[in-house]
Write a protein that binds this DNA or RNA. Structure first.
Lengths: 183, 183
DNA sequence: TACTTTCTAAACGCTAACGTTTAATAAAAT
DNA sequence: ATTTTATTAAACGTTAGCGTTTAGAAAGTA
């Protein structure tokens, strides 16, 4: 096989990070090649076009990043511990949380990606909904509260981007969450 | 004075729209000049640099767009009507609602703009908090609920971008809101 | 050894966008 | 009527980035 220089996964991981930082406009082939210490022809060997490249990034994101959280929390013992863990993880500084933000903007021109995002959103909400159901909420309430929580989380990200999360602020946030659910 | 061709405000309004659509990368002087049927030298006459231009857009946004909603709702008679109106307005398709999202990303490199955004966010939350207080909530509760509502709204935008808002979906959303406040 | 596959270097041509300059012109002020 | 001020057109040089091409090296296979 090849001389080991820049493999496909190197490109994709770098692309993922850059996309999370600046969106599509962050994906600049020549700059990336410099970071990877290789020539851009490597890029065009691995990927036919930029669009195809981004598609692969999205696949990577779905397969690793999005499923990551659920597997991590799902390993907890009982339901309310799972929920607690989930909240702990999601309401802390997540390095590439802007990825989905930019992806949504990018997806405007791309039906396929739009659908993937919708599915991811729906899965996340459904996961929390199920936890809540197991904790005793009615099906209806669980659904509403899961949606509330997810929207709240998104709002939380928007309002705390690149900010330090002070103890005090997090206490406020916890109060807000407690308004939605008792856990 | 001048021959009337492309005035400062034309540039700013166009810039505002483009920024709301694509962020900084949407601000492309030569493209804008074509839309305005003028030469790009006009731009460089009105604005020293792109950055200065964006600063002016931000000022425009603060002075017109952000204050717009509050004045519109504040004209309602009583407090709960104001709140109702506010929710009606904000939870409907707003043409340039992505402006603040992109601005937040842009503001990472710009302390001044960051502070402006923080102030806008705080003012909005405080406005709702005051309404809720007048409606009988305790100061603490009003604060929490106002924050909840704002985060919920942001999440709502994120999840419904470029989607049709079906009757059914809006009923769900209203239920979520009702979980936070009764109004 | 010879051949094939996988990958990279270097160079090329092209377009988009930047920001500047210089000259021209229309309206306002004198 | 002339000068000043505000504004634009046209053209220029520069850089960034795109995507392609051509030639060839390293590793694996026959």
């Amino acid at each position: 096989m090849p001389k080991i220089v820049a493999e496909k996964k190197d490109w994709i991981q770098l692309g993922y990070r850059l996309f999370a930082e600046k969106g599509v406009s962050g994906i600049v082939v020549e700059k990336m090649s410099k970071k990877l210490n290789c020539n851009k022809s490597s890029f065009y060997w691995h990927f036919k076009t930029k669009k195809e490249f981004i598609n692969e990034i999205v696949i990577y994101w779905v397969n690793t990043k999005t499923k990551n959280i659920i597997t991590r929390t799902d390993s907890e013992e009982n339901t309310s511990q799972k929920l607690r863990k989930l909240i702990d993880i999601t309401y802390s500084k997540m390095p590439y949380s802007d990825f989905i933000f930019y992806l949504k903007r990018y997806a405007v021109k791309d039906e396929k990606i739009s659908k993937i995002i919708d599915k991811v959103d729906a899965e996340r909400i459904a996961y929390v909904g199920n936890l809540l159901k197991k904790m005793g909420y009615s099906s209806k309430d669980a659904k509403i509260k899961a949606s509330l929580l997810y929207k709240h989380l998104i709002g939380f990200y928007e309002l705390t981007r690149y900010k330090e999360l002070s103890e005090d602020y997090m206490i406020e946030v916890k109060k807000e969450i407690n308004q939605i659910i008792s856990y």
